[in-house]
Amino acid sequence: MTENRIVCRNLTKIFHGIHAKQDVVACEDISIEIQPGEFVTVIGPSGCGKTSLLYMIAGFEQKTSGMILVDGKSVQSPGPDRAVVFQEFALFPWLTLRQNIEFGPRERGIQNDVMREHVNSMLRTVGLTAAESRYPHELSAGMRQRAALARVLVNEPKILLMDEPFAALDAQTRSTLQAELGRLAKLLNLTILFITHSVEEAVLLGDRVLAMSARPGRIIEDLAINLPRPRDPTSPAFNEYRRHVDLLLEQATRTAADTETTAN
């Protein structure tokens, strides 16, 4: 097959209600191809099924129809090859920061001394060595998201699936982490699918931006961002892209509002 890392073909997700009338179509007929090392951001109005899309690729949700291939193999269940970073961090509150990062290697049966070395270098990479014995609730939100990133990167995944990972952070921390993520993505040659509701974030980070319509979620545009990195969010070229995506989303939301009025 192709050299694509992630392929979705005619992917549809329907959440079944008690009656057929209550069925909710989360995503409809989504086809995407993502190459190794690509950073793809997904943006769309809230409730458009972007999280469903990500969770299907992660293996958390079963697709209703269509096909998902990762490195040519069909996705059945979650696994350490597809790392997920959640908006709410999802660190295990009963483990210290170091134990949280050790969780993956332990589950995969990595030898203790090898693991210790990996964990140490990962703690250094994300700058959390000094906080390694603290529990998650003793860390700031920024540190928690860094820890969540370290926890998956220590498994050396090829794919990183991120579900609005920086939405709960303050602006300062967010821009620091955005820069760090951009650096790590290139350094580790990660393939990233990144969901966000911030247009600026989508254009800042993505090699491509996928814009989705309101429910049922469809891809309405696949936009390549041809700007050199690091990107300057105040430059005219950046704003050009931003205005374009803004307009797309506005249309998508307006259509959603129309459908709702008709439904009522």
């Binding site: 992660a58 958390f60 696994g79 997920v84 709410e88 999802a90 295990f92 498994n155």
Partner: peptide, 10 residues
């Protein structure tokens, strides 16, 4: 989310 986090960590 914690269950999902554990599953995706292996």
């Amino acid at each position: 989310t914690l269950v999902r986090a554990a599953l995706m960590l292996g």
